[in-house]
Design a protein around this nucleic acid. Structure first.
Lengths: 225, 225
DNA sequence: CCAAAAGTGTTCCGCCTACACCCATGC
DNA sequence: GCATGGGTGTAGGCGGAACACTTTTGG
């Protein structure tokens, strides 16, 4: 049986992943040196080609799993990038995704293995092809989202202090916010729960640890930072 | 010379266009009956396959031009849709775009020729494949945008009345707004200029016609509705 | 005892919302 | 003269922004 579309030509389609992590008070992404031609040794996002039997979202999840060993990562599509000459080797259309992970969950053996490096978003090198554009767009999308949806928690440990949460917010948005106002807003969100646990790693006095209660959020999903 | 990617398989990539128009006080889109198998005679967005020598954006522009005869249409990418079985004929990844046009600029001969119909967004039929999903996402994206960026004007004639602008806004957002408050906000945007011209087609008294001054907007791009 | 981070309330201003009546004209 | 859509201002309340000091404890 011949297909009805046979007169049209096909192209390679890849996914590229922008993996955000929050580390040392900075928003960073995982990048590596490209291991194939063309563009060998240029800084690059991690990506992969789409297989026949998987959806585009599945491909992104597969690539993320290869890279991080983690499943059920928070992930959103950034968009399709399809300039003709964006890949010097051959026509490739790439669909970019961004993912949010907690740096501590990340197996650093895998990092070694893939030769990857955490680099601050605000201090990226020139990267292969249009990868800088992809990152810029992903970052902007995430900035918009972080004030309206509870996505911050994907970048933090299950238990976190309010200072951590605030620093993260500041790092993503690129501006400082007032501590008291920030905490006032947090208090209004019942699904951000104070525990009795105290973290003493970052201060002598210690800070209460909080947790995000997803169930509670689903019942009353009003998030505003 | 062999290519370095040859071990990966290629897929068909198409673009699908969600063409928004504002007509009779409603937000509508252009859809037609599909003219090929599979899915013949199902309602469908208008689309086309990507050619070798054009970028994805160019493909979308080409398809839009075929369809409307218009160039320089306002157009934004909605995203890539890539479920394995989204097209029953063969694996096709589709990249959706939405476009905003002024219904009056649109050549209705072309509409006849392509067998297209303006259908209210809130009253869409079941469509082919995942096209309803695409429309829903496009609509949501546009709703978010219309309050922060001056995109409304793409859906209106060059000269428009404030009532038209308000009705458009209400149609896109799906809720009524207060006339005086709406006009107050308009007054604060100097780039929405009152002309001395009066439109008498929709009232006996007549209403002042306004125009969007793009130059003025670029100098002071503060848009808020 | 000192340094370093955690924690906590109040005031003020600006913006957004709610709201109702007169105007101009064609028929 | 009346029906139809066009056009206009104000008052009150709410939410966001600015702002500084006390607490705890390890060293």
């Amino acid at each position: 049986m011949t297909t009805y579309y046979e007169e049209y030509s096909k192209v390679l389609v890849s996914v590229d992943c922008i993996i955000f992590g929050f580390d040392e008070g900075e928003l960073k992404i995982l990048i590596g040196k490209r291991k194939m031609d063309p563009g060998r040794d240029q800084w690059s996002l991690y990506g992969g080609f789409i297989h026949d039997e998987e959806s585009v979202d599945d491909a992104a999840n597969r690539v993320l799993f290869q890279l991080t060993g983690l499943r059920n990562i928070y992930m959103r599509q950034v968009g399709a990038f399809g300039n003709v000459d964006r890949d010097p080797g051959e026509r490739v259309i790439s669909i970019a995704y961004y993912a949010l992970i907690n740096v501590k969950d990340y197996d650093s053996n895998l990092q070694e293995e893939h030769g990857l490096k955490w680099v601050p978003v605000n201090d990226l090198p020139q990267m292969y092809s249009d990868h800088n554009t992809m990152v810029a767009k992903a970052h902007k999308m995430m900035q918009r989202k972080i004030s309206h949806e509870p996505i911050s928690f994907n970048l933090l440990p299950k238990l976190f202090t309010l200072t951590q949460l605030q620093k993260l917010y500041e790092a993503v948005c690129g501006e400082k916010v007032d501590k008291r106002n920030f905490r006032k807003r947090i208090k209004e969100m019942d699904f951000i729960e104070k525990t009795e646990l105290i973290d003493k790693t970052s201060s002598k006095r210690g800070a209460y640890l909080y947790r995000f209660n997803k169930m509670a959020y689903n019942e009353d999903p009003n998030f505003k930072l």
